[in-house]
């Protein structure tokens, strides 16, 4: 009898463990996500997903292509370059805080800092660089931080995203938290990020054409016609939350940084195209 119980428990454990682990690694998630979108949009090349709605709608794409003759973010990028190269009061520059002097590194952000046990986004690194050099931090959502981030992204254009989730319990938790946030319904309208960008990309929600999950962070910071200026990814997160009547979280909060971590990991291998324009 005891032997039978032991065998039953062993079988139960053997059956349960693979279910818990199935599809649970970041790389398995990413591969499944890529397959999902390939099946949803068989005529769209995978690299095209970084262009969001412009990859899915010919009319929108034509409008976008004509706008690219004189991109509205150009002045902000030039301004960002000047700010990036201007020394702080102590004589150092942003370059002193980043690998490769901050040039061509956008594709590695965000990353998980295993010493501080937190996700470091590019904007967070920019402000921490300022503070380390005795300068006050910039506002998170627009203005100078978006311009500096846009300039740094522009030096990485075409480089494939290479986000890593190290074999570290805290990093895995951060990734999973971001994933949970993306798929959890929020707000009075009871929408998750996935409700629009996984389940309904390519469809219209009022006057907005929904973009797919893949490639979403690749074009940030973006110049939105609605904003009339550049804005950061966390500004967009807050706007999306607000649209579904969920209270937005602060830009660079742990929740939004983890969300960015998960979302950008999903775009691994796709090229950096930021800064870009969106309606």
């Amino acid at each position: 009898m005891l032997k039978a119980k032991v065998i039953l428990v062993a079988i139960g454990v053997a059956l349960a463990v693979p279910q818990v682990q199935a599809g649970s690694t970041p790389e398995e998630d990413r591969k499944e996500t890529v397959e999902y979108f390939k099946q949803m949009f068989p005529d769209v090349a995978i690299e095209e997903f970084v262009n969001g709605q412009y990859a899915l709608d010919e009319d929108r794409r034509k409008q976008w292509a004509s706008m690219q003759d004189f991109p509205p973010y150009e002045f902000a990028v030039a301004e960002g370059k000047v700010m990036f190269e201007t020394p702080f009061a102590n004589g150092k520059t942003y370059a002193s805080c980043f690998a490769n002097n901050g040039i061509g590194i956008r594709q590695n952000y965000p990353y998980f800092d295993t010493v501080k046990n937190e996700v470091i986004t590019l904007e967070l690194a920019i402000n921490r660089c300022r503070e380390a050099n005795g300068e006050p931090p910039l506002g998170w959502k627009k203005g100078p931080i978006a311009s500096i981030s846009a300039y740094m992204a522009s030096t990485s254009q075409g480089k494939p995203f290479d986000i890593k989730v190290p074999d570290d319990a805290e990093a895995q938790v951060a990734y999973q938290d971001g994933k949970e946030f993306y798929y959890s319904r929020r707000g009075q309208l009871n929408f998750s990020c996935a409700s629009c960008h996984v389940q309904n990309p390519g469809k219209w929600i009022r006057a907005d054409l929904l973009s797919p999950t893949l490639g979403q962070p690749a074009n940030f910071p973006v110049h939105r016609s609605k904003w009339g200026e550049l804005g950061t990814l966390h500004r967009r997160f807050a706007g999306c939350n607000n649209n579904v009547r969920a209270e937005p979280l602060p830009a660079q909060s742990e929740e939004y940084r983890n969300l960015e971590y998960f979302l950008t990991y999903m775009s691994n291998g796709l090229p950096v195209v930021g800064p870009a324009t969106r309606p």
Binding site: G23, S24, E28, D29, E32, T33, Y36, K179, E180, Y183, S184, R185, R186, Q188, N190, S192, A194, V198, Q199
Partner: peptide, 20 residues
């Protein structure tokens, strides 16, 4: 209602997640 949503989503999100 928002508290009920929070409690429900603690598990419900897995049902729709890719690679859950």
């Amino acid at each position: 209602e928002s508290v009920a949503q929070r409690k429900k989503q603690q598990e419900a999100w897995r049902n729709v997640a890719i690679g859950n």
